[in-house]
Design a protein around this nucleic acid. Sequence first.
RNA 1: GGCGCAUUCGUCUAGUGGCCUAGGACACCGCCCUCUCACGGCGGCGGCACGGGUUCGAAUCCCGUAUGCGCCUCCA
Length: 430
Amino acid sequence: MGSDLHASTILAVSVRVRMAPSPTGYLHIGNVRTALFNWLFARHHGGEFRLRIENTDTSREVAEATGQIQDSLRWLGLDWDGPVTFQLDRIDLCRQRAGALLEAGLAYEDDGAIRFRMPEEGTTAWEDLILGPVEVRNATIEDVVIVRSDGRPTYNFASPVEDAEDGITHVIRGPDHVSNTPKQIQILRALGAPVPVYAHSPNVNGDDGRKLSKRHGAITVDEFRTAGYTPDALVNYLALLGWSYDDRTTLMTRAELVERFTLERVGTSPAVFDYRKLDWMNGVHLRGLDPEVYASTLVAFLRERGRSWDEELVRRSAPLVQEKIVRLGEYESFAGFLFEEPELREPELLDAAVLTPAVAALEEVRPWNAAGIEKALREVAAGLALKPREAFQPIRVALTGSRVSPGLFESLELLGRERALTRLRAVAAG
RNA sequence: GGCGCAUUCGUCUAGUGGCCUAGGACACCGCCCUCUCACGGCGGCGGCACGGGUUCGAAUCCCGUAUGCGCCUCCA
């Protein structure tokens, strides 16, 4: 047995937690929240955060999902310690432990499977770091199958065996595991292994109060990534789902989250994932980026999406959109007119009475910059006795195809004299 | 059905018996700023699930009811 080894590692590391996802598909945002709590807890205490894949076979799907999970965690910045471990590699260990329980009379065979003998009387209780004291009468718990008749260990057996093997000190997981906990505690005790401290976080639900699923919107890390959310914003938002620092702090950096996170301040009631608040928070994080960093982030984002737009122009346009868009994914529809001819969806908003004199005035602008353009266009508006907003809207629509756009004068400058004038002339004539 | 957990503005939450005629944030509404949008500023709407206790005093403690969620798989 490795109990001596466990004792020494536990002494060396005061806190060791793990995330133990099953490799079925992409990383779900609810699991990420749980992973985040584990990660914050570990980093806050200077402990370790381990990644353990609860695979039960080695199919290609599993290999893909395993890679996806790691990519997503890396993108989020949730780094783990030590190697990734796999449940499948612990099968022999589990069988050996099951054999020991069998010999000790603490488990018995049942139609080829092995069942753990739960105590028939008394209660199993634990002090949950989030829920507080929880107590379950043993009589209500059935003898759980720990090894199937085909020889594979079940989750409720493999999980505690692995926790013991890995020297896990705190098990922080979702609320769906509350009723598994007394079973796992009894198994651990029967094994003579240390029982970790448990903490069951509340659920994250959709706006109908039910489990977060596809129909609520984005649910996998990958979807948030391609929509243009930043890891820092997502982490900030997720941290606040079930946890709070005080009565007023909502915007926090990663370092602040690590410094401030404690399980004591994790609540007990389920939270609803609010995409609108995430959007707001993402906008705040985006606006807070250094302009250079923002531009590079935008370039990388577009490249990842397969856009081959001129990088120089993207960079020059970045400051114009940084204050305006809330997700990087909005850039394409918001600033796409800089790279491609826009589609004129609302031709009724065009007005030749404005466009014709505007083109004439712009032809005289030298040098071609936002200040000169603004001066010229304001004079056109004044000459037509129009309010600036009335005069500029047809020009905006002609230029960008939309009534919502980055600043008009800056947009004209960026597009360049020839392209801008050509486009405006074509629309004015048409 | 059994067991467990939960229940403060639409949403995330603060609140651990008097500081609460319940605070903050998002959303929403109005006004201001303004070339659109966004940002920003100011203001507004809006909540302790219900019923009993305990207490001088309850959002906070106890009991019950209702509702929701989870588990009750040789799934994880």
